[in-house]
Design a protein around this nucleic acid. Sequence first.
DNA 1: GTCTATAAGACGATAGAC
DNA 2: GTCTATCGTCTTATAGAC
Lengths: 193, 193
Amino acid sequence: MGERGVPRAERRRRTEEKILGAARTLFAEVGFERATIRAIARAAGVDPALVMQYFGTKQELFQQAARVTPVADGELTAEEVVEHVLASLSVKMGEVPQGSLAMMRSMLTHPEAAASARQVLGEQIDRLAAAIPAEDARLRAALLTTIMLGVAVGHQLLELDELRGVSSDEIARLLRPSLRALTAEQVAGDRTG
Amino acid sequence: MGERGVPRAERRRRTEEKILGAARTLFAEVGFERATIRAIARAAGVDPALVMQYFGTKQELFQQAARVTPVADGELTAEEVVEHVLASLSVKMGEVPQGSLAMMRSMLTHPEAAASARQVLGEQIDRLAAAIPAEDARLRAALLTTIMLGVAVGHQLLELDELRGVSSDEIARLLRPSLRALTAEQVAGDRTG
DNA sequence: GTCTATAAGACGATAGAC
DNA sequence: GTCTATCGTCTTATAGAC
């Protein structure tokens, strides 16, 4: 076709990227087990054997496709934590990185994806805990993280009717007080009983 | 063995229950695709062909194993909703029905499980929305539901370190203000900007 | 009624032609 | 470098022996 003059290394890179894109899409849509090498190759418009040639094994292809880019950030105050978590929701709601979706889709059934999810979530918990002024900061950070995970699962993967077409801003607005309740310092003597 | 005198219908029922128990356990542990008929039969101590003889297809076995028993309840006030949701968490944290776990484990990768999950979650959203005095009650109910889903996933399925060994009471205590924030009537003029 | 044997097909992965 | 052909292994499901 019109690909003359393109260096081989560049062509190879483009083909790899095309395969990775198809892999991300399919892993995100149906998960690790149901996304077959054959279907990924078909979606990418290449030969199935080429996929194996490039990536070795299906697991390695998954690792590269579902690689999640961690958002490094410095130290935050408790209030900034809430806004930061909500912003990450906005990212998740709008243009979700398909690699993250691929990992989330497979995390309950594919052991490697589960391990990867535990690591990513654990890192987020660490960052949040560092900014929460409470003795049980890690537990609170874990609940914050699972809350956002649940909302993302319900919206992006299960596609619940009630969350379809709702703007991330509105969800953020409704969720903000709930998140603040978890990051705010507890008043002594709050217990009833 | 010592089973003489037991009517055939009764023996059949016991074998079915043994198979269903093994199916629930395996579906909950590894999900629909990775839980094979062979492994389920092995765990139940029966022949794989017997499982097919009794249940017809793997999908039908899954449907019976992952059937979730809906907790019917009457009308509640907004405050009762919070306690009710938290109580369902206690149920989920302590002795979780394995059928529910089986459905949750497979809901992201098995289409039938996803449909079942949408229905169960939708029914809970309906019940909660009826008790929330707000215009956007359904959206708030959906967020409440996904929050609990996320906590259950993080604790029961991903087994996050930070949630291991934490009593459901403590989680409920930390989560209560967050849930109240979603069910409480919003003060007019709360918007900033 | 229960199990043996096998059908029928999909999969990941590999070897070798071009 | 890319594709054809196929291997070996797994699966669900079925047919028939006992």
